[in-house]
Amino acid sequence: MITTLAQAAADSGGPMTLGESIAFWILGIVALGGALGMVFARNAVHSALFLVMTMLSLGILYIVQQAPFLGFVQIIVYTGAVMMLFLFVLMLVGRDSSDSVVEVLRGQRIAGLLLGLGLALLLVAAVARSLTSVTPAGLGANLQGSNNNLPGLGRLIFTDYLLPFELTSALLITAALGAMVLAHAQTKSHEKRGQRATVLARLRGEHARVSPLPGPGVFATANSVAVPALLPDGSVAPESLSDIIESTPVEEIEQAPADPHALTGGTPSQDGDR
């Protein structure tokens, strides 16, 4: 349907067609709802999901505006990769952590509010100017129709705007390398030990014992962690007891008298057929 709408939209910068305005009003409401939801959602993952919704609608709006490449790159890069990494981190943080009400930096909220308002003002001013005083060129300019704006974009990026493009990529690579160096510098102290080094450390006595902890044992009836290992004489191997399980208070379940009828839901027959 989106593509039909896209094909119905005019190639030139003329007035909005019906399909275009329908798409705009639907997607605009969805995008705005997503943005508001992102701000007001309590759970961090829900916030991220609302942001995904906004980004998706923006991507589809780009597609409707005859910029399919921009739209799909928005979906692939921002929605698919960047937000996915966000989600990755949020999921690791834990599902029950929500915003704390305590203000960490003094005056942070007031400053945030003021700066946000200032940014909004700037944006509105810039957009308002482009809405009134700029005449749309349309995609028909430069003999590049809607289906050819991709080669045109590529030509511009790799000829006129090559230097900014390369600078941006250099910046990104520097950032990625810097992150890797910083992250690696912190983990160097406890680097992962190989199998050989571990064995040597064990033999040197750096571990509590040389061999692994005893398994369930030959005479054990179960291999659950809650069941201790048995030594050949039938006694309990003390090293196999888990500290955590042993220190957890356990409520004894009262053993109900065995009643086979409780399983089937029937009543025990009185005439004694046993």
Partner: peptide
């Protein structure tokens, strides 16, 4: 005109 990207976008969604 960007059909191949549709598949990539769909798999990332």
């Amino acid at each position: 005109p960007v059909g191949v990207l549709v598949v990539l976008a769909c798999s990332s969604i």
